[in-house]
Simulated scan of single mutants.
Amino acid sequence: MNDRHRLYLWHVTQNRKSKEIAKIEGVSPRAVDKILLQAKDILGAADRFEAARMFSLHASGVEGFYPGTILPSPPELWPLPSPLPTAEGRMNWQNWRHLTVWTAIIAIAAPLTVGTAALLLFVLSLLIGANPQ
């Protein structure tokens, strides 16, 4: 993490938007977004605000380790995290691998469910004596 990352994260802790940071620092808002995205990735944060919070905790002495020295471990593929918010975790931490697996599960399960329901309705109609035509 370089000085520019630290400076832009400090601006985020001051609740400044990218356009405000760009105007103060004399760069484009897109450049600010790019640097903040890099800082977020270096720290392993979910967004720029969490990265700024992690940086400010370190700067204030609450966190003992420098947040840019320990790289986050990649998320495990299995067990799949729930795609819906739960009581334990209200945020969705899906990555592209999780989304791919969930898409495959839904793509297989949905037609099977619809087919089973149609077969059940057909069998029930035969049992009650309806003429299926």
Rank of each mutant, 00 (worst) to 15 (best):
N2R: 08
R4N: 06
R4A: 03
W10C: 05
H11P: 02
T13K: 02
T13F: 00
Q14V: 05
Q14M: 11
N15V: 08
S18T: 08
K19A: 15
K19H: 14
E20N: 12
A22F: 02
A22L: 06
K23R: 15
I24T: 14
E25N: 14
G26H: 02
V27P: 01
V27Y: 04
S28V: 03
S28Q: 11
P29T: 11
R30T: 12
A31I: 00
I35A: 04
I35L: 01
L36M: 03
Q38Y: 05
K40S: 08
K40P: 01
K40I: 00
I42R: 01
I42D: 03
A45E: 08
A46P: 00
D47M: 02
D47R: 05
R48I: 02
R48A: 03
F49A: 07
F49V: 09
A51Q: 04
A52W: 00
R53D: 09
M54Y: 07
F55Y: 11
S56I: 07
L57A: 14
L57I: 00
S60R: 15
V62C: 11
E63A: 15
G64L: 09
F65H: 12
Y66G: 08
Y66F: 05
I70F: 10
L77E: 11
P79F: 03
L80H: 03
S82H: 09
P83F: 05
T86A: 04
T86I: 01
T86W: 01
Q94F: 00
Q94V: 00
N95S: 10
N95E: 06
L99W: 00
V101F: 00
V101S: 01
A104C: 12
I106Y: 06
I106W: 07
A107E: 11
A107Q: 10
A107K: 05
I108E: 10
A109P: 02
A110K: 08
P111A: 09
P111D: 09
P111F: 03
P111T: 06
L112T: 10
L112A: 14
T113F: 10
T113C: 15
G115K: 02
A117P: 00
L119C: 06
L120K: 10
L121C: 09
L121P: 00
F122C: 07
L124E: 12
L126S: 11
L127R: 14
G129S: 11
A130F: 06
N131A: 11
P132I: 05
P132C: 11
